[in-house]
Amino acid sequence: MTSPDTDAEIRVLLADDHALIRESFRALLEAEPGFRPVGEAGTGTDAVRQARRLRPDVVLMDVRMPEMDGIEATRRICADAETPAVRVLILTTFDLDEYVYAALRAGASGFQVKDATAADLLAGIRVIAGGDALLAPRITRRLIATFARQGLADPALSDSVGVTEREREVLILVARGLSNTEISRNLYITLGTVKTHIGHLLAKLAARDRAQLVVAAYEAGLVVPGS
């Protein structure tokens, strides 16, 4: 995916069923250089429609909305051939395990609760618009716990994707929430080599970004809780 130009404004679609919340987010983005709210949606159905029409860089997506919830709206946006570059940041008051897993599984590139600071929210939008994933260590831990609890991994898949031993080592560290720089230090390899390995992993596991890479890794049995 092509990242937005560093000098360009990040175009954001606001999807929340509460008008007051949308207005607050709009005011925040309008007051911050480098961001531009391009539209609002009060239902999941409208969020999908607006994403197709406006092609924003990032959708701030609430979970609980009428007509279609944010998880299903995220799944449709991320799977739509008309919106391949649109990325979704799930933003909700419901900081619950099932939403974390469901949101990432649907294709979201990040997950953040609504009580996050303005600075954290803006930083998260920048990260996602830049082509990375907002996968905080606590979210990674919850994802691991979900797989450990539900036994979602299918080890039979691990032999079919052609992941090398070094790539598996990188993948384990990605799944622990480490940055590229931290992985480089841990494995004593260059930052460029880390990026190359992650690029190969994204292709082999058909993942959009680091968030989907972690989900795919667990589902393929390439990484297991405690590894």
Rank of each mutant, 00 (worst) to 15 (best):
R87L: 06
A31W: 10
V38R: 00
A206I: 01
R55T: 03
V214K: 01
V100G: 07
Q150E: 12
A211W: 04
E23M: 11
I198Q: 06
R168E: 08
G70P: 05
H18L: 08
I125C: 03
H18R: 08
L187D: 08
T83F: 05
G34M: 04
L152N: 02
A27H: 13
A156Q: 13
L13H: 09
S160L: 11
V38Q: 06
D97N: 06
V174G: 01
A51G: 11
T164R: 11
V63L: 15
T140E: 10
D132G: 07
V100S: 02
V113A: 02
E167S: 06
P56I: 09
G110M: 03
E169A: 11
L60P: 01
M65F: 11
I21S: 07
L171V: 09
A31D: 14
A47F: 02
A27S: 03
L157Y: 05
D17N: 08
E98S: 04
P66A: 15
S227L: 04
F25K: 01
G70D: 06
L122N: 05
E182R: 12
D95P: 11
R105Q: 14
E32H: 10
T140I: 14
F147G: 00
E72P: 12
R36V: 07
A136S: 14
A15T: 04
T74G: 10
T43Y: 01
L213K: 05
D16A: 09
I139E: 01
G151Y: 09
D5T: 03
L121P: 10
A27Q: 12
V215I: 15
R36L: 12
R64V: 11
D62R: 06
A27G: 02
R142Q: 14
A156C: 04
T140Q: 10
G131R: 07
A129C: 07
L191I: 08
V194E: 07
A211T: 02
A129V: 05
A148H: 09
L134V: 00
T43R: 06
A15E: 11
G42Y: 03
A216R: 12
Q150C: 10
T74W: 13
G177E: 01
M61E: 10
A85V: 05
D5H: 15
A145M: 15
A136I: 10
D115E: 15
T146R: 13
V88W: 09
A206S: 15
E9Y: 05
R166N: 15
S184P: 08
D209Q: 13
Y101L: 14
D5W: 10
I189N: 06
I10S: 03
V163T: 00
K204R: 14
E98W: 07
P33H: 13
E40H: 05
A207M: 03
M1L: 11
H197Y: 15
I21W: 10
A153K: 08
A27L: 14
I10Y: 12
P37K: 03
L89C: 10
R75C: 09
I125L: 11
T93C: 01
E30H: 13
M65P: 09
A153Y: 12
T74F: 12
A47S: 12
L122E: 04
L29N: 01
E23K: 15
D57Y: 00
A81E: 13
P137M: 06
V38M: 08
R53I: 06
